[in-house]
C-alpha cells in the first residue's frame, strides 16, 4: 500500500463542483496553503471546482490560502466560527454584498460536530449556545437539571489537511499547534488529502507518536518547507486569479 501521490495537482484533481470541503488550520497555523493554491490553479485552468461549501475555523486572512479561494469565487457557503482576521476584507466584502453564505458555529461545537461526523455520531447535546441566537430553532433537552442544545454531525466529501510527517500508509504527525482541526477533518471526510513536510516509508514513524492513524487518510503529497499564511501576509502576497 502506498497513499503517496506525485504532485499537488494530482492530489486535488478529484474535487468536483458543489462538494463540501473541510480545510484544516486555525488562522494560518496548520493551513494547507499549497493544496488550496493547487485547487485555485485548477479552477483557473478549467473553471472547476466551484460552488464549494467550505468548513474552516476562519474565513481567510489577506489574499492567500482560504481568502484567495473565496476571492476567486469558488466558495458559495462557509461554515466557520470566526470570520474575522487581521485582514478579512475578502470575506467581509463578499458577505456584505450577499455573495457568500455563512453558517456561524461556536468553535467547540464546530470541532465536536466534525469529530462526531468522523465517529458516526449523527447528533449530540452541548451546553454551548443554549439560550443564545445561535441556538434558534435547534432542539433542546434537559439532562441532570441543565439545558443543552442538539447539534448535528458535519461530514465532508474532501478534507485538505496539513501534516508534518506522513508515512506511505497515511499515518500522520503534526507540528506544534498546527494540529488543531486537522486530525478531526481527516476523520470526517470521505477523502482526506494531506500535504506533509516529509513522507517516510511505513515504519518510519514510531507508532507511539502517530496522531492520525492512516485509516483516516486517503492521499498524501509531499510539500517540503510549506508556506505560512502569516509570512505571506507580512510580505503582502496575493494569490489572485490574475496572478
Amino acid at each position: 500500500m502506498d497513499k503517496t501521490v506525485s504532485d499537488l495537482a494530482t492530489a486535488v484533481a478529484g474535487i468536483e463542483d458543489g462538494m463540501t470541503v473541510m480545510i484544516g488550520g486555525f488562522g494560518g497555523s496548520g493551513s494547507p496553503i499549497e493544496l488550496i493554491h493547487a485547487l485555485i490553479d485548477r479552477y483557473r485552468e478549467t473553471g472547476h471546482p466551484k460552488d464549494l461549501v467550505v468548513i474552516n475555523n476562519n474565513a481567510g486572512n489577506g489574499h492567500v490560502g482560504l481568502a484567495a479561494l473565496i476571492e476567486a469565487g469558488m466558495v458559495h457557503k462557509l461554515i466557520c466560527s470566526f470570520p474575522r482576521s487581521a485582514d478579512p476584507v475578502v470575506f467581509t466584502e463578499m458577505y456584505l454584498a450577499g455573495g457568500i453564505e455563512l453558517e456561524l458555529v461556536p468553535q467547540g461545537t464546530l470541532a465536536e460536530r466534525i469529530r462526531a461526523g468522523g465517529a458516526g455520531i449523527p447528533a449530540f447535546y452541548t451546553p454551548s449556545s443554549y439560550g443564545t441566537d445561535l441556538a434558534k430553532d435547534k432542539p433542546v433537552a434537559e439532562f441532570d437539571g441543565r439545558m443543552y442544545v442538539q447539534e448535528r454531525w458535519l461530514k465532508a466529501d474532501v478534507a485538505l489537511v496539513k501534516a508534518d510527517t506522513a508515512d506511505t500508509f497515511g499515518n500522520l504527525t503534526y507540528r506544534m499547534a498546527a494540529r488543531n482541526f486537522n486530525p478531526l477533518m481527516c476523520m470526517a471526510a470521505s477523502e482526506a488529502i494531506v500535504q506533509a513536510s516529509r513522507i517516510v516509508d511505513a515504519g518510519g514513524i514510531d507508532p507511539e507518536v502517530v496522531v492520525t492513524p492512516g485509516i483516516f487518510v486517503q492521499k498524501v503529497v509531499e510539500v517540503a518547507d510549506p508556506l505560512q499564511e502569516e509570512d505571506l501576509n507580512r510580505a503582502n502576497a496575493a494569490y489572485s486569479l490574475e496572478a
Partner: peptide, 13 residues
C-alpha cells in the same frame, strides 16, 4: 457587519 463568535459560547460553560 459580519457576525463572529469563536470560542466565546463554549468558554462560558
Amino acid at each position: 457587519g459580519v457576525p463572529a463568535v469563536g470560542g466565546a459560547m463554549d468558554l462560558v460553560h
